[in-house]
């Protein structure tokens, strides 16, 4: 793999993934939060991870950032630009965070320090990480705040987090995340706590930044309609595993996994009347359970005996389309 990197001239769009996750597992004691994720993100690509609450989306994002703390245990491989991140020292991970990978969290209040002004928190990124002068850092902070749509940034530098609305705080978190021009931005449900009008603005901002700077995007959400706004590729998670992946609109129009189809049927945007809603039967699986077969089997309308006995592998149903189901091809063909 390394020889390949050397052969490729810098700047040329390479066929090598920027991020490559293989067999990623995260365990907290008996809780299996992530049970084996495989996922590649190409430079500049926008990917949405979709899954219900507890399916392991946030843990996946944190594992990529190297933010899983004990007693959490990480196994498997996370390669960023060819560099293995799993098992790497905190000091060397810190160098990757920021210019390599940056993350925006669901709750902006968790991400910002309440006792320091917004200005000092942004300025610090440049003075500490890039050893810039205070004046230069201040100018860049103002430019960033403008870029994410904060009006009159000079006059707001000295304000504290609680003096901003939720939407503005999330914009500031985005500003801080993109400050060091990351090559990959992970956004973990950055708009779930916000109003629709505010959400629309933030989604637009993220899309724009991603396009203009060419950074790759990993967008975590449980809302299909939101995923469509920002991502080209979709990865569907269930019980800590990827069950389907492909170009987002293709997956919408022709799901190849029963869980994806069920998710679509339960989305209010997909029907005309409430009676047409098709909720997913049963409950999400127990996180401490160990599966011998397909984790979706107890809730799957299509399940047969084999499903609970043997775990399905990924089946490639079409170019760029994969589904982890014994009946993937039949699903895809509408049979």
């Amino acid at each position: 793999m390394t020889t390949e990197i050397l052969k490729r001239p810098a700047g040329e769009t390479s066929a090598r993934p920027l991020l490559s996750i293989a067999g990623l597992r995260v365990r907290y004691g008996r809780t299996h939060a992530v049970r084996g994720i495989d996922l590649d993100i190409m430079p500049g690509e926008s990917v949405a991870i979709l899954g219900e609450s507890g399916s392991g989306k946030s843990v996946t994002g944190k594992a990529v950032m190297g933010l899983i703390n004990p007693p959490g245990k990480v196994a498997g491989s996370v390669e960023f630009d060819g560099m293995q991140l799993v098992g790497r020292s905190e000091a060397s991970l810190r160098a990757v965070r920021g210019p390599g990978i940056a993350m925006v969290f669901q709750d902006s209040l968790d991400a910002l320090n309440p006792v320091f002004s917004i200005g000092s928190q942004i300025i610090e990124i440049f003075t500490v990480r890039l050893s810039w002068s205070g004046q230069q850092a201040r100018e860049e902070a103002i430019r960033l705040m403008l870029q994410v749509g904060i009006v009159n940034p000079e006059s707001r530098l000295d304000d504290y987090p609680h003096q901003f609305s939720g939407g503005m705080r999330q914009r500031i978190c985005i500003a801080m995340a993109i400050a060091l021009k990351p090559r990959l931005l992970i956004a973990d449900e950055p708009t779930t706590a916000l109003d629709v009008t505010v959400q629309a603005g933030i989604l637009k901002l993220i899309s724009q930044l991603q396009r203009d700077s060419g950074m790759a995007l990993l967008f975590v959400t449980h809302d299909l309609a939101v995923a469509r706004q920002v991502a080209r590729k979709l990865v569907v998670m269930y019980a800590g595993r990827v069950v389907e992946r492909g170009p987002i609109d293709d997956v919408f129009h022709r799901p190849a996994h029963p869980y994806t189809r069920a998710l679509l049927g339960s989305n209010p945007g997909s029907v005309k009347h409430w009676s047409e809603l098709k909720p997913i039967a049963g409950n999400p699986p127990d996180k401490s359970a160990v599966f011998t077969g397909c984790a979706f089997a107890p809730r799957c309308p299509r399940a047969v005996r084999m499903c609970s006995e043997r775990e399905p592998d990924f089946v490639t149903v079409a170019d760029g389309r994969q589904s982890r189901c014994h009946f993937a091809q039949e699903m895809f063909d509408g049979r």
Binding site: S46, V196, T197, Q199, A200, L203, K204, S207, Q208, R211, D223, L224, A225, V226, R228, Q229, V230, R232, F252, L264, N267, G269, S270
Partner: peptide, 19 residues
């Protein structure tokens, strides 16, 4: 109108495609 325009939908154009 603003509320309606802001609601993400499963059908129709997405913001990304508009751009």
């Amino acid at each position: 109108r603003l509320l309606l325009a802001s609601s993400p939908e499963l059908v129709g154009e997405t913001a990304t495609k508009e751009q």
